[in-house]
């Protein structure tokens, strides 16, 4: 919990600063928009957090978003597959990708970075291939299913909750329970810290690692579906571009250590929200979108540095307090 306080503080600071610089930040329209984007990225971030907890990394998820996000409208509008088949198919493909990653990493012992880097190139390439690089979309059809991403649920007078937020809440609760309350979550945390000791304790480390990659790619697939439902059309060239970096940054800001074995779902959610608020701030406050990456990079760096300093400060405080409780025995001997 304490780990989250720092990033939560940063989120509040960024919100306050943005609100004071721009009147439209707190408008219902903008808040709903930021929440929707945060929810969509939150789904991806939770997925990649599982992989990061095992000590791995998933660089491919932006391309999985692209593959699924282009694949779904392509199957529906070009091939006229029924929704009840197309949707399960694209999600199964996404999970199959995770399964393949996991098996390559555990059975062939190829490094996660390499496996998923190749995935990053591969899946976007495939999506560009089967669409012939053409934009795909739903046009004016599929209004019903698109409500999943674009719909709103009355919440407060004058304010409605975007549907993806509700979906994210469900995903987050399930993920948090899985991580903290099931033996499998404990297995993941243990093997992320020390895979050897986990193996010696009879934990099926390979199967658990594969599971983490399936979760990551699976949620990337779900995210892809939501993203394309939200924006209505996808361009294979850049749909989902850099999303893996937003997701990884959100997870790390939220307290996942890239060394593995550490991370909380709530932290990841705060991290994902922070990223979207930052992007929102840049569009609202500046007229120059081209500095977006520079600002985001700087804020992540500040966040990580602040977190590290806070931890050191806490450690020193702890020592100092313990010192006071030591009777001055040492001084008299």
């Amino acid at each position: 919990m304490k780990k989250i306080l720092g990033i939560l503080g940063l989120l509040i600071v960024v919100c306050v600063v943005t609100a004071s610089l721009s009147d439209s930040f707190l408008s219902a329209y903008n808040v709903e928009n930021v929440l929707r984007r945060s929810a969509l990225f939150g789904i991806l971030s939770i997925g990649v957090a599982f992989v990061i907890i095992t000590g791995g990394i998933d660089l491919s998820l932006g391309s999985v978003v692209c593959l699924v996000g282009c694949g779904l409208p392509w199957l529906l509008t070009v091939h006229h597959w029924p929704l009840g088949i197309a949707l399960p198919v694209v999600l199964t493909v996404a999970m199959g990708i995770g399964l393949a990653h996991g098996l390559l990493i555990t059975k062939l012992r190829i490094q996660p970075f390499i496996v998923t880097l190749c995935g990053l190139l591969l899946y976007r390439g495939i999506a560009r291939g089967f669409t012939g690089d053409q934009t795909v979309g739903f046009g004016s059809e599929f209004k019903g299913i698109r409500m999943l991403a674009t719909g709103k649920i009355p919440f407060l007078p004058g304010f409605e909750l975007p549907a993806p937020v509700v979906f994210l809440a469900v995903v987050a609760v399930v993920a948090a329970v899985f991580l903290n309350r099931t033996i499998f979550g404990r297995y993941l945390l243990a093997l992320g810290r020390n895979p050897q000791a986990a193996t010696y304790s009879g934990i099926p480390t390979e199967r658990m690692t594969v599971l983490a990659y399936v979760i990551s790619s699976g949620l990337a697939g779900v995210g892809g579906v939501f993203f394309v439902l939200d924006v209505n059309s996808a361009q294979p060239v850049d749909f989902g571009n850099f999303y893996e970096l937003y997701a990884i940054a959100a997870a790390v800001l939220g307290g996942c250590s890239l060394r593995g074995g550490e991370g909380s779902v709530v932290g990841v959610l705060v991290g994902a929200t922070l990223m979207q608020v930052l992007r929102n701030m840049i569009t609202l406050v500046t007229t120059r979108n081209n500095v977006e990456f520079a600002i985001i990079g700087a804020v992540i760096l500040i966040g990580v540095i602040a977190d590290e300093l806070a931890r050191r400060f806490a450690a020193r405080r702890r020592t100092a307090r313990a010192m006071q409780s030591v009777p001055q025995a040492g001084a008299q001997v």
């Binding site: 099931t182 033996i183 404990r186 945390l189 243990a190 810290r193 020390n194 009879g202 074995g261």
Partner: peptide, 25 residues
């Protein structure tokens, strides 16, 4: 040992599956 984990979590590591309740700790 998983050095960064606590005494409790280390001691239970090999018996989690025996003591589970349908997958829950």
């Amino acid at each position: 040992l998983v050095l960064e984990m606590g005494v409790r979590e280390n001691i239970s590591l090999a018996t989690l599956h025996r003591d589970q309740r349908r997958g829950f700790l």
